[in-house]
Write a protein that binds this DNA or RNA. Sequence first.
RNA 1: GGUCCCUUCGUCUAGCGGUUAGGACACCGCCCUUUCACGGCGGUAGCACGAGUUCGAUUCUCGUAGGGAUCACCA
Length: 465
Amino acid sequence: MSKLRVRFAPSPTGFLHVGGARTALFNYLLARKSGGAFVLRIEDTDVARSTQESVDAILEGMHWLGFGCDEGPIYQSDRFELYGQKVKHLLEQGKAYRCYCSAEELQSKRDQAMADGGKPRYDGTCRDLTAAPEGRPFVVRFRSPREGSTVFDDIVKGPISFENDELDDLIIQRTDGTPTYNFVVVVDDADMQIDPVVRGDDHINNTPRQILLYQALGYPVPRFAHVPMILGPDKSRLSKRHGATSVMAYRDMGYLPEAMVNYLVRLGWSHGDDEIFTMDELIEKFSLENVGRSAGVFNPEKLLWLNAHYIKSGDPERLGTLLVDYLRSAGIDQSSGPELPAVARSLQERSRTMVEMAEDAAFYFCSEPEFDDATVMKFFTKENRSVIESLMRHLNNCSELTHESIEGAFKEAMEETGLKMGKLAQPARAALSGGSAKPGIYDILEVLGREESLRRLNRSLAFFS
RNA sequence: GGUCCCUUCGUCUAGCGGUUAGGACACCGCCCUUUCACGGCGGUAGCACGAGUUCGAUUCUCGUAGGGAUCACCA
């Protein structure tokens, strides 16, 4: 595959949402696969709505997901001079013209057209103006051809065609002299030699105008790949009301970036029946040819399943490191207690999110667990006292608590008491954790260690009837 | 409303003229079992509709219906 230059071009008016993240991912994979360049371009021509906080949030999201860019971030606000030159050229060539209609006039014309059942488009009032009014504010409009049609062969959607007379003369420069999106996106994609342009299919309707602009500017027209949108459960465009849409919100909810990447890539793309992909596999296997044409519903359940999968198969050392922040957020004092990797290892098979893991790890860090009435009633009975004592004796004989030594102790205790595993494990679990802690009982003992385990068991004795 | 796009289980999807329509999430049942999970096995469930083309349509064409996007001095 030849080297591709692709880009992700978010506008800094909010955080990185899952839709944008997927678009970024597709572009990133294409660049990595081809050994080409992934350009990050910040579309901040709307100075009023763009914020540095948003830029930072987007960068943070990209970093978390592991999408490193090769060029950028490039800010369009740094390139106004270039856009100004291009506008000037179009003006000189008569391919653009000044329009003196005010925003209010335009709006009322649109409203009128709508009321008459017509199309809300610019009527061309200033298109052929010969005498320019003096000193009045103006915008610059692109002189769009009124005949013919514009067609392109979308890489994912196939052939798409528009009649040119459906397109009106779009504004390329505002009254304040700043350029607008449809213009700068063309100048930049051409200037940065982006090909293919991979973006959300909400841009399909902009594409014919942009193609006309490429041609007017004398640029070669790139290929386009419009990827389907991500919808909410009600099939409407995914938004806040559907729940979390910010990528970083998922980190906060205990999701791993690889789970998010894996989920996002499968939403709209497939590789046979495969479900699990490492980033390296994605780079090797991803291709636009296998991107579907239809929109997809964001399914949190499947994301959760993938997250559980990655936690389950994750490196305990890493999970332990990640756990630090989640424990802190859960208000758990981790200053003393077991080693985090060991904690993570004991819980990774049963945690679907890191938040769950932190919550389920709480008992490890609570040296004096509270016993509720139900627990006392059920497990701390007269008969069970001897059970715990028996277990303590055999545990005490172990020099160190390992899976083997613990198993041995349990066997001996079972023999001594004549009880089955269940009768032994449950009271012990309650005594050690204060309730029905999730890890296997051997794991709890092993992670807690000999001294702490015996201390907790001994302490529980006081609560027996 | 105009334009454009889309349409296989509830959801994500495989399928690229002939298949018992496959997989995954979710759901249900059974097994495993020291709690909870994991895991294993099995199951429910789908080609929107109507015409064509064809010996044969989920697959190709055209309609219909439904859904979505877009029609800014936002991007």
